[in-house]
Design a protein around this nucleic acid. Structure first.
Lengths: 143, 143
DNA sequence: TCCGTATCGGTTGTGCACAACTTAATTGGG
DNA sequence: CCCAATTAAGTTGTGCACAACCGATACGGA
């Protein structure tokens, strides 16, 4: 009873997350990005020239995930990675011209995503805020 | 502005899903299960002897994900897989004694999960329902 | 009945997540 | 000033997700 699948918040989250990611996939394919790669680009479009550590703390991903992902974005000529001169341990990630330019195409995505669905913007914004609060609470609990 | 990370519902979902999964991890470690394996066990505890296709449609996972996962659960002696006699194409997945027994330990998980947090049960249930509705809408749109 | 088509499960290949570990650079206490 | 502890990024290994493809079985009309 307590264990029924449809009663589990975790499954609702897991399921919704995969469904929304699947909604992005065809749009991101046009940009040649995977979903996590898109998230990294979002962070860099907001502010360029960040360290791997900064990217990781924004996205809550570790170097084990980011290192190979950034390598692929570098191979796609969207960004460069170079050791920081003032601290040789850290690596600064910067957008290339192509990386900056890709932003224009990405601007179209939020508008196209839920178009043709009857999903209200306010409702989605409220859901987003609820989720953000939940994540923050869990995060704070675990530190 | 529209592209800022913190404005994206997708990131809120992705982030919350990973945070909640991380909350399960130490509890599931005690059972020797990963999170997706736990979901499969939830489905089987509800009703035993399901085909791979049935499991997939409940969890919205394809055989490419389920086949190796089920193999690992079989290797852990939690379930068996055998070709259905009436339709040799399909495979019936059944719990072993160990698989059935594991449910008792799993019963403790929902109670232990959010204990020590100030997360209200009603609020979480409402969030779950909102997410389920969202997923259903996206799913229906894509068929 | 026979053949074309659909269905079921599995395999292969790519790309995350995440844990555990490694290497190199930095820092801070004695 | 030196060395032990810390920190940043990368590597390795495991286990999902998902796409593309494959082989075997079942089915349905001509």
């Amino acid at each position: 009873m307590e264990l029924e699948l449809r009663h589990q918040l975790c499954f609702a989250l897991y399921s919704a997350s995969r469904a929304v990611t699947a909604l992005y996939r065809p749009l991101l394919d046009e940009l040649g990005l995977t979903y996590p790669q898109y998230l990294v680009m979002l962070v860099l479009w907001e502010r360029d020239a960040r360290t791997v550590k900064e990217l990781g703390s924004e996205l809550r991903l570790d170097s084990g995930t980011l290192s190979p992902l950034l390598k692929r974005l570098e191979a796609a000529d969207l960004l460069t990675r170079e050791r920081s001169p003032e601290d040789e341990r850290s690596v600064t990630v910067s957008l290339t011209t192509r990386g900056v330019a890709l932003r224009e195409k990405a601007e179209e995505i939020p508008g196209r995503l839920f178009c043709g669905t009857d999903l209200a913007g306010d409702e989605l914004a409220e859901l987003r805020d609820t989720l953000t609060r939940l994540t923050d609470k869990i995060q704070r609990r675990n530190t």
